[in-house]
Amino acid sequence: MNATWRGWVGLAPGRIYYRGEIGAAGTHSHHAVQLLVARDTVLVLRGADGVDHSCRAALIPANTAHAVVQGAADGLLALIDPVSSLGRLLDRGESRSASAARWRLDPHPLPPAGDVSSAEAIDAVIRSVVRGEIPAARPRHAAVAEAVDLVPTLLPGRVGLGEVARAVHLSQSRLSHLFRQELGLPFRAYVRWERLRTALLLLSSGGSLTQAAHEAGFADSSHLTRVFRSMFGLAPSELLRGVRWEGQQVRPSPGRGAGESWVS
């Protein structure tokens, strides 16, 4: 069985999550570390060398060409910014070759959707892979929390470290250090992810590509599409076709029970 793409999408600082059906995808690479996990079936993934690998889970470094030959009816896909502390931990500085991918991981089992929240399930899988804790989605330091709240209000304009540091009464160097410490992500990369979050929210609520690009601060729809392809390996329209933002209600597909849903 080769599934289509239908599920939910969630975004945390430096990470985008997908839970649901994993469909086939041609050879591509993206500027993100990728974690793929199937719940109760086998994935068939193809490396840049053309060799197929049957596995339940795989970790693929950033900028590494690969293809999904056979997907799964229920699985997890996480894309993680390679400059984040979590991305660097997963990447481990390996060379960008077909052999750099770890095709047969043995992560924490992925529970059925609905047993626990999807975010909790995904974080449990990632913790089992890195054997440790992952950065919190919400900073503990009050000034960083204030900065995180401020960034979206400055979009679509330029969001400079100096401007935000002054607003939260910290030096630029201190705020930069705290962003890495609290969120595991440099300030500039965090702003890029906030732009992507804004664009995704607009697109998922029915906004046009042009509107999403404008309100998120991208030069135009082509610029937004290029950034999406670089980070996610596909265009915004492909990402959102058949998926929903976390928390949205999704009509069950034929054959699913009335109590089942594609969202957490």
Rank of each mutant, 00 (worst) to 15 (best):
A24K: 11
A25E: 12
A25L: 13
A25N: 12
G26W: 09
G26I: 06
G26H: 11
H28P: 06
S29L: 12
H30E: 11
L35T: 06
L35P: 00
L36R: 07
L36A: 15
V37S: 04
A38M: 03
A38D: 02
R39W: 00
T41D: 15
V42M: 12
V42R: 13
L43V: 02
R46M: 07
D49Y: 04
G50W: 00
V51H: 14
V51G: 09
D52N: 14
H53Y: 11
A57I: 03
A57K: 00
A58T: 02
P61Y: 03
N63Q: 15
A65G: 11
A65F: 09
H66G: 08
H66L: 00
H66D: 05
A67M: 08
V69W: 05
G71H: 04
A72Q: 04
A73G: 12
A73Y: 10
D74L: 14
D74S: 15
G75P: 00
L76N: 01
L77D: 13
L77H: 11
L79D: 10
L86G: 01
L86C: 03
L89V: 13
L90S: 08
G93I: 00
G93F: 01
E94F: 15
E94Y: 15
R96I: 00
A98S: 15
S99M: 11
A100Q: 01
A101E: 07
R102W: 02
R102D: 07
W103D: 01
R104P: 02
R104V: 09
L105P: 00
D106M: 14
P107S: 09
H108G: 08
L110H: 06
P111F: 04
D115W: 12
D115I: 12
V116P: 03
A119D: 10
I122W: 05
I122D: 10
D123S: 08
V125I: 07
R127T: 05
S128R: 04
V130T: 09
G132Y: 03
G132W: 08
I134L: 14
P135V: 03
P135C: 00
A136S: 15
R138E: 13
R138W: 13
R138L: 13
P139L: 03
R140T: 15
A142V: 13
V144K: 00
E146G: 08
V148F: 02
V148L: 09
V148T: 09
V148S: 08
D149C: 12
L150D: 05
V151W: 05
V151E: 04
P152N: 01
L154W: 04
G157P: 05
V159H: 01
G160F: 03
L161V: 04
